[in-house]
């Protein structure tokens, strides 16, 4: 009896936690879903076919989002790793950390709004490089905060050991420090990828609607009252994080200490 109840309670919890994805999938496979029907009138692959045929530019948005997120994640991870070493051993470490927190915790849309003038002046508004640079302003501080506590005396001793044994700084970085830090580097890459992938406010302000990432596309479909295409785009948005969840749960859950 208890075991049966346990299974029912488990099933209920599974349904509750996966409800958003189930409803989005249902919407994405329907062509018409009128009130008060609990299920759609017809199920169809039409919306997904439209995606593959790049109707409404959904596939292009997917590719733009992937491109932006990969570049932003790679740049912020690489720069963050190198720069965090400087912060970790700096005499004013706490002050630098406080500075790093500011752009990261500010509302991205407000941050973008006060920076918009400079982006327009530099001809970076409505431009993919402008969007990537703006996103870097929030992903880089995140990478710095993630890496800063990683640099400790043990790691510094390793660098000193390489130097004592005749290795130079480049050898120490590429042959010792990066190989032993690859797990954290991967974690940072995926986390910054997701920040960029999920980003809407900043992208819509700096991209002025011209850079149509998937989040911008979802909003556009919602504004056009097209919930079916919005659901397909939403499913695409969820795909990379689900993939990360599948390969390693910790890529999705991380708290800055």
């Amino acid at each position: 009896m208890f075991s049966k109840l346990n299974w029912v309670s488990r099933f209920v919890r599974v349904v509750i936690f996966s409800l958003p994805i189930l409803l989005l999938l249902l919407l994405s496979f329907s062509l018409q879903w009128r009130f008060p029907d609990v299920l759609p009138d017809t199920f169809s692959l039409g919306n997904w076919k439209a995606l593959l045929q790049n109707q409404n530019g959904m596939m292009v948005s997917f590719e733009i989002s992937i491109f932006i997120s990969i570049i932003v994640a790679f740049t912020s991870t690489a720069l963050g790793f190198i720069m965090s070493r400087m912060i970790a051993f700096h005499s004013k470490k706490n002050l630098l950390i406080a500075f790093a927190y500011l752009p990261f915790v500010l509302s991205p849309v407000i941050f973008a709004s006060v920076l918009n003038f400079y982006f327009i002046s530099a001809d970076l508004s409505g431009n993919i490089f402008g969007v990537m640079l703006a996103q870097l302003f929030i992903t880089l501080p995140f990478a710095l905060l993630l890496f800063v506590d990683y640099w400790d005396l043990k790691l510094k001793s390793l660098e000193d050991l390489v130097s004592t044994l005749g290795g130079n700084s480049q050898q120490s970085l590429f042959k010792v420090i990066i190989p032993i830090s690859k797990n954290l580097l991967l974690l940072c890459f995926f986390q910054t990828f997701l920040i960029s992938w999920f980003e809407y406010g900043l992208t819509s302000v700096i991209g002025v609607g011209k850079i149509q990432t998937l989040t911008v596309k979802v909003f556009q479909f919602i504004s056009e009252a097209n919930p079916y295409y919005a659901a397909v785009s939403s499913c695409l948005l969820i795909l990379p994080p689900l993939f990360l969840l599948f390969i390693n749960k910790k890529y999705l859950f991380n708290t800055l200490k």
């Binding site: 996966s18 999920f198 989040t215 939403s234 994080p241 999705l252």
Partner: peptide
């Protein structure tokens, strides 16, 4: 699962 969902979605 909900951690994989962006705010917009």
């Amino acid at each position: 699962l909900p951690l994989a969902i962006p705010a917009m979605v």
